[in-house]
């Protein structure tokens, strides 16, 4: 565990707290893409199947359970909560997320490091996480004025990915035989998807005005 990895995980955790806080405190999920949240739920389920058969550390196991729990809570609020579900902007959340799932599955079947059930599902989760933010980014563009909490949520998610890249650089330079090309390439693509958002987020923050993605 290094400081970049820890900071990345905590930023990821914070992003989920911010999103849950927004939903619970304002009883609204305006501007939030349910499709992205459902993709994250799929990502966590397929990646953390290893909770059942491998143990790395208490830290890892607790975080996995927290990520799974928060992802499903968010989906529950957006789809089933009697007040919150009416605030979901269905007509702005039109990205065809099933294509992302299908594409990630095909890619995982073609490019993986071992052709076993759990390894293919784990690889699928890596590919799907890389593109899971796309419905949310498209929705931000269509929403117009983006409220602070939603903007901060996406910003924190992007920060988390950036910190993971620093973590990989650190691990590569300090650990022997540490090599995970699939994760690195997917992670760099994932982080690059945030570039546009980061540009407008920082620009608007600098000019002290409400976030708008043109």
């Amino acid at each position: 565990m290094n400081v970049f990895r820890l900071a990345g995980d905590l930023t990821h955790l914070l992003s989920l707290v911010v999103l849950l806080l927004k939903i619970v405190a304002t009883k609204s999920c305006r501007g939030v893409s349910a499709k992205t949240q459902e993709l994250y739920a799929i990502v966590f389920v397929t990646r953390y199947l290893d909770l059942l058969f491998s143990f790395v550390s208490l830290y890892n196991s607790v975080m996995k359970v927290v990520f799974l729990g928060s992802a499903f809570s968010i989906v529950y609020f957006m789809r089933y909560h009697k007040v919150v579900r009416h605030t979901y902007d269905r007509e702005l959340d039109t990205f065809r997320s099933s294509f992302l799932v299908a594409g990630s599955m095909v890619l995982a079947l073609l490019i993986n490091s071992k052709y076993t059930f759990f390894e293919v599902l784990w690889t699928f989760s890596i590919y799907l996480e890389a593109v899971a933010i796309l419905p949310q980014l498209v929705m931000l563009q269509r929403t117009g004025n983006i409220d602070n909490l939603t903007g901060n949520y996406v910003f924190l998610l992007g920060m988390y990915r950036g910190l993971y890249i620093l973590n990989w650089i650190y691990r590569y330079s300090t650990e022997r035989r540490y090599w995970q090309m699939i994760v690195w390439v997917s992670g760099i693509i994932q982080t690059a998807l945030y570039a546009d958002f980061f540009y407008y987020y920082l620009k608007c923050w600098n000019e002290n005005r409400t976030l708008v993605i043109p």
Partner: peptide
């Protein structure tokens, strides 16, 4: 091995 392939990350 688990650690070497980075599966100790989240």
């Amino acid at each position: 091995d688990y650690m070497e392939t980075g599966k100790d990350e989240l």
